[in-house]
Design a protein around this nucleic acid. Structure first.
Length: 419
DNA sequence: TCTGGGGTCCTAGGACCC
DNA sequence: TCTGGGGTCCTAGGACCC
């Protein structure tokens, strides 16, 4: 059996840990640049707010109901996530962290009849030790555990823990679940499925394997098997990422090349740091920029440029030099740029770098030590302690964060603000 | 005034090889 | 008269996840 442990309204719950007076109140957390709602409390959902809504379109609701709004505070969420996962893994060593707010627990070997009580105890412990409420679904496949988690979260009667352990319960659960809610199917496919008169997860598993393969490929077959109780979803063993993208919308549009370049330098620097953090190098670098796609009355320009590097690298200054060249090739004056980013791909282990006969960079080993030192200085809550001059400081493109909470976990001044 | 930021996987089709 | 069969690799696009 597997358990899925899922933090409830995670970003909102993180903010509430340090602002307990906000329990039972409508609360939202916004995306980067204070753009869209990405997390909501149940009270915010109840007054009609939805995930994905741009804040400016729901200002009236926010004002009328006195909704508390937060800019996203990612280091806070990452810190609390680590605490939740630590509590989890101390009780159950075989866990798979699936996302910032979810983990699967392998319950093999434990008596099934004990599982509900054990998971209830786990839920209580996570709540008490971290302040984060969770829901737990238990079933014999990960997809069914997700289904069980759905019921645990949305039906108060379960008390936050739901187990699907018999065919009868499975049938009931699937018959009441719209197929678009199933993990791996997705809402985009719901209209297509509706047209075929497949409305529930139960309808979906009634179709033949060949039919599912034809219409929804091998992934669709896997999902069908999982819903029937046949485990097909492997433990994900993606330890290193195959591509890394860093990009942001700007707080204000920029048109000067120097401004755009400083943002590209910042994004490239972040990519290099992420490469080093997973002990890899990359041999493809891409950059892109974009005007505001919502302002259709303005001239639009969305250039993208890419280059294959002679030697794979995670050297910030080397990547910055290539990124600068790429920008030279695509920059056009007269446009108002609203977003930009950098992508590294062609990623491989840093121990497996092939030497290039025409390599012009000297002292690669020494430079590696340099960046190791820089990464140490910038680690923990000390991001930005050391950076390249080309990145600039306090540039206009930096994201808006009008409602950000203190950095409670890393900054003593933040803690002092807790009531 | 104002609309997020990451990732992964699969398939089809074309280019190219023998 | 008449034109196979089998493979790999790459890319673009779509769909999914959080």
């Amino acid at each position: 059996m597997f358990a899925l442990v899922d933090c409830n309204n995670f970003f909102v719950s993180c903010e509430r840990v340090f602002r307990p007076e906000l329990r039972n109140r409508p609360v939202c957390v916004l995306s980067n640049n204070d753009g869209c709602i990405v997390a909501l409390s149940n009270e915010a959902k109840a007054i009609g707010l939805k995930r994905g809504s741009p804040l400016f379109k729901v200002r009236d609701i926010v004002r009328t109901y006195g909704v508390t709004v937060f800019s996203s505070n990612y280091s806070l969420y990452a810190g609390l996530s680590a605490r939740v996962m630590r509590v989890l893994s101390e009780s159950y060593p075989d866990i798979e962290i699936y996302s910032i707010d979810e983990a699967f627990v392998d319950l093999e070997g434990l008596p099934i009849e004990e599982l509900p009580a054990r998971m209830m105890e786990l839920k209580r412990k996570i709540q008490k030790w971290t302040g984060i409420p969770v829901s737990i679904g238990i079933a014999e496949t990960k997809t069914l555990a997700k289904v069980a988690g759905h019921y645990a979260k949305h039906y108060a009667g379960y008390g936050g823990v739901c187990m699907i352990d018999t065919d009868e319960k499975r049938k009931k659960a699937l018959q009441r679940l719209p197929v678009g809610e199933v993990w791996g199917v997705g809402r985009r496919s719901q209209p297509k499925l509706d047209a075929m008169h497949i409305y529930t997860a139960w309808d979906y598993v009634q179709m033949s394997e060949n039919w599912v393969r034809h219409h929804f490929s091998t992934i669709g077959v896997r999902t069908r098997n999982e819903l029937m109780g046949l485990p097909c979803v492997e433990t994900s063993e993606i330890e290193t990422k195959q591509s890394i993208c860093t990009s942001r919308s700007f707080g204000e549009t920029v048109s000067e090349k120097e401004q755009l370049l400083s943002s590209i330098v910042y994004f490239t620097t972040a990519c290099a740091q992420k490469l080093r953090a997973q002990h890899t190098v990359a041999n493809i670098l891409s950059i892109f920029a974009s005007t505001d796609r919502f302002k259709t009355e303005l001239p639009q320009y969305r250039p993208f440029a890419t280059i294959k590097l002679p030697v794979p690298t995670a050297d910030t200054s080397e990547l910055i030099a290539y990124a600068t060249k790429l920008l030279d090739g695509i920059y056009r004056p007269g446009f108002l740029y609203k977003k930009a980013g950098a992508i590294v791909s062609g990623i491989m282990d840093d121990a497996a770098v092939q030497q290039n006969l025409f390599d012009v960079v000297e002292n690669r080993d020494k430079r590696q030590n340099l960046f190791r030192a820089i990464d140490r200085l910038n680690s923990g809550g000390n991001g930005g302690t050391v950076h390249f001059a080309a990145q600039g400081t306090n540039e206009r493109w930096q994201s808006r964060k009008d409602h950000v909470s203190p950095d409670y976990l890393n900054d003593i001044n933040g803690l002092l603000k807790v009531k």
